[in-house]
Simulated scan of single mutants.
Amino acid sequence: AYEIGFKGSWLDNTLSLEGAVFYTEREDIITAITSLASGGAVNFYNGGDGTIKGAELSVQAQPMPNLNPGLAVIAGATYLDAKYSNYAEGRGFDEGTGLPFGPDAVGLPARDFSGNDIVNAPDWTASATVLQYLPLPNDWGNLELAADAYYNTGYYFSAQNTSLVEQPKYYLIGARIGYFYEPYGLQITLYGENLSDERYYSSAVNLDFGPGRTLAAPRKYGLRAKWTF
Rank of each mutant, 00 (worst) to 15 (best):
P109I: 00
P109Q: 04
R111M: 12
D112E: 09
D112P: 08
F113K: 02
F113E: 07
F113T: 00
S114H: 04
G115D: 06
G115H: 04
N116T: 08
N116K: 08
D117V: 01
D117P: 00
I118M: 13
I118S: 12
V119Q: 10
N120F: 07
N120Q: 12
N120P: 02
N120W: 09
N120G: 02
A121T: 14
A121K: 07
A121G: 09
A121S: 15
P122T: 07
P122M: 08
D123S: 10
W124G: 07
S127C: 05
A128Y: 08
A128R: 10
T129A: 00
T129Q: 05
V130Y: 05
V130G: 08
V130N: 04
L131V: 11
L131T: 10
Q132W: 12
Y133I: 12
L134K: 06
P135W: 01
P135S: 07
P135A: 09
P135K: 05
P137S: 04
N138H: 14
N138D: 15
D139L: 12
D139E: 14
W140V: 03
W140M: 15
W140D: 12
G141N: 02
N142R: 07
L143D: 03
L143A: 06
E144P: 06
E144V: 14
E144D: 13
L145P: 12
L145A: 15
L145W: 09
L145D: 11
A146G: 14
A146E: 12
A146K: 11
A147P: 13
D148N: 07
D148C: 06
A149R: 02
Y150N: 02
Y150M: 00
Y150E: 03
Y151W: 09
Y151E: 01
Y151G: 05
N152M: 05
N152T: 04
G154C: 01
G154L: 06
F157D: 02
F157E: 08
F157V: 00
F157P: 02
S158F: 08
S158I: 08
S158C: 02
A159H: 10
Q160P: 10
N161C: 04
N161K: 02
N161I: 07
T162A: 11
T162H: 12
T162S: 15
S163F: 14
S163K: 15
V165C: 05
E166W: 12
E166S: 09
E166C: 05
E166F: 14
